[in-house]
Design a protein around this nucleic acid. Structure first.
Lengths: 179, 179
DNA sequence: CATCGATGCGTACTGTTGTACACATGCCGT
DNA sequence: ACGGCATGTGTACAACAGTACGCATCGATG
């Protein structure tokens, strides 16, 4: 009998490694990310991860980019609602109902602080959100909204304070009024 | 002749280790922080760091707390100036003139995302800034200002966008107007 | 002045990590 | 058809990590 057929020609492998990396970061944080831990999670040999991603930064870039793509559609805005209320509601959904995902995405995003390789991707993320908001307000205000939403999320995630939707709505309303 | 006199009775040792830890994080990031790297930087033996700080989290807590104490006085506000302008100016001083320190302080602050041990200290930091602003505005607005300043700083630090003081001033002005 | 606990020092152990490298395999252009 | 090259696999190695632990030394307490 043949030995266990070693897996060959696996075109999805690269993608599976990225998915595994995201799961690892979600479970153990970036500090727990290593070529070996992703390899185990993706069920591929060690050499495979080092082949597709020479450095961990490469892997983080791919993971952050993928997380971005999943985040932007979450900002889908309903038509009738007022903008501040809609954003406050979406923020609440992310921070209350999907805390794990919020932590994961912010951890990848914030990693750009010390990893220059991630900075362009973080900038892309920023731009994508601004673009999603540009249908509803001017570009300067859109950037401001991003800053404010980041700030609110940070306070919640870093200090453990519960998310206060009316407060967020009030703050966003203030930002939306032109000078 | 006597052997090199082994250093004994060094009451400042603990403090020197904290200072060394801050320098290490500033130079190599939290990822480069280890009992060994601080020991080398502080010029103390390995056993000394593990004695004073059982875990690296303990060390990070001390470092973050110390960074906080250095940050709050930097928020000293001049009397005559309008609040938004003063904060925008201070933000500029931190982000333009002292980028390294800004990165260091935010890295320690953001580390609370994945390290529950740091969360109370991050909350203290938040409260300290709110308290410093409370002489000039109401508590709710003070919290909002902290969120906005964090958000602005993040955009600058994470994406590499240059700091735009007039933009920050405008945004802070919007937040300061009561609803 | 004897003793005990806090502090300091050195070293050894065990696990984990990034990296390199030699070899296997199968697609694709010629 | 066939050979080069991208892809996949397994293993080994050197560096470095946290941790533990035995011993040295000092200050204070009685």
């Amino acid at each position: 009998m043949a030995a266990a057929p070693v897996r060959r020609y696996d075109p999805e492998r690269r993608q599976r490694i990225i998915d595994a990396a995201i799961r690892v970061v979600g479970a153990k944080g970036i500090a727990g990310l290593s070529h070996r831990s992703v390899a185990a999670e993706a069920d591929v040999p060690l050499g495979s991860t080092t082949y597709h991603f020479k450095t961990l930064d490469d892997l983080l870039v791919a993971a952050l980019r993928q997380a971005n793509e999943a985040y932007a559609p979450a900002l889908a805005l309903r038509g009738g609602e007022d903008l501040a209320g809609a954003l406050a509601r979406l923020l609440g959904e992310l921070l209350d109902a999907d805390r794990g995902r919020a932590e994961l995405e912010y951890e990848l995003y914030l990693a750009a602080l010390r990893r220059p390789a991630l900075r362009p991707v973080a900038a892309e993320w920023c731009e994508a959100v601004v673009a999603a908001l540009s249908d509803h307000t001017d570009p300067v205000t859109a950037r401001a909204l991003v800053a404010v939403m980041d700030g609110i999320s940070l306070q919640v995630l870093l200090t453990g304070t519960p998310y206060d939707e009316p407060y967020a709505r009030d703050l966003l309303t203030r930002v939306l009024r032109p000078t």
